[in-house]
């Protein structure tokens, strides 16, 4: 086959070269303006006065306490949402029951609630004028405008992440492997640990890193329930706001650059996970037909 025939064969389903270049160029220019430039600006502004000023800004005690609080928040919110995500995905994906679609909508709900509203509802429950306010006051327990409120608001906005990744994955994989394990005498826990978990590990990592990025970066919800007390109830994003409003630009962007690095690491892990998952799916597709892929029966039913 000559190159000419290949070219004419492709012509039907692709565009002429200049159309392609214009489209690619426009898309890349848009991405550059809206994504690359803001990212570059964070680091440039942080280093505007050199590395020394940058390090100094990061060594501020208030910056340190903001970093510690952010890590603490993620360390509490993440395991809780991980357990929830696995439990929710197991019951939604493995069983059929009345009200299941309502439950999945409910799991998604925190995604569509404005972060500010998410913060407000905790003020209404735990605040001084809230439902539990008088009772909490009596026992001198502070939840809102203190660390527990920040953690609760963060949990709220990150509830769906892990469940959302796992549900479609576990539904696509079906129940056959777990049933086989149970029939062969495995306990429920062994089945989960040795059969389900290896199958969902990529989806799980994916969900966990996205959940972590949001937990560490949440601003709106946390801003409502935080008392904005420097060094005590400021997470990293809130500390960025305080510094920025005080015209301490270098310090604000220095803390922001840590969060931007977190975002870059998140994207890198996410891409690696996606590529590995794709490779595994390809490997499964190339298996001989005597071991049918888990996806096959599902598509047969829906067709």
């Amino acid at each position: 086959m000559t190159t000419k025939t290949i070219r004419t064969a492709r012509k039907g389903t692709t565009e002429s070269a200049w159309v392609r270049y214009v489209l690619i160029g426009t898309a890349l220019a848009f991405m550059f303006l809206f994504l690359v430039l803001p990212l570059a600006a964070v680091f440039t502004e942080a280093l505007r006065k050199g590395w020394d000023a940058y390090w100094e800004a990061l060594q501020e005690p208030d910056a340190w306490s903001a970093i510690r609080l952010t890590l603490l928040t993620a360390a509490v919110a993440l395991p809780l949402n991980l357990v929830f995500g696995i439990a929710a995905a197991w019951c939604v994906a493995k069983y059929e029951f009345w009200g299941k679609s309502f439950l999945t909508t409910l799991i998604d709900l925190p995604f569509s609630v404005s972060p500010v509203v998410a913060g407000l509802i905790y003020v209404l429950v735990f605040g001084a004028q809230g439902w539990l306010g008088p009772w909490l006051m009596e026992y001198d327990i502070k939840i809102v405008f203190a660390v527990p409120g920040i953690i609760l608001a963060t949990i709220f906005v990150t509830v769906p992440f892990i469940a959302r990744e796992l549900i479609p994955l576990m539904q696509a994989q079906g129940n056959e492997e777990e049933q086989a394990a149970i029939v062969l005498g495995a306990t429920g826990w062994q089945t989960f640990w040795y059969v389900t978990l290896p199958n969902i590990k990529w989806g799980l990592i994916y969900g966990v890193i996205l959940c972590n990025a949001r937990a560490m970066g949440e601003f709106g919800a946390v801003s409502v329930v935080s008392g904005h007390i420097r060094g005590q109830t400021n997470t990293m994003p809130l500390h960025v706001e305080v510094l920025y409003n005080e015209y301490q630009s270098v310090a604000a962007f220095a803390v922001a650059s840590l969060l931007a690095l977190l975002a870059l690491v998140t994207l890198a892990i996410k891409s690696v996970v996606e590529w590995r998952h794709e490779r595994e799916m390809k490997a499964i597709a190339e298996l001989p037909p005597e071991r049918p892929t888990p996806l096959a029966p599902a598509t047969a039913v829906s067709a």
Partner: peptide, 12 residues
């Protein structure tokens, strides 16, 4: 935009 905290996006 999913991964970058919104406050960082805002100031930059």
């Amino acid at each position: 935009p999913f991964a970058l905290p919104t406050a960082v996006a805002g100031i930059s």
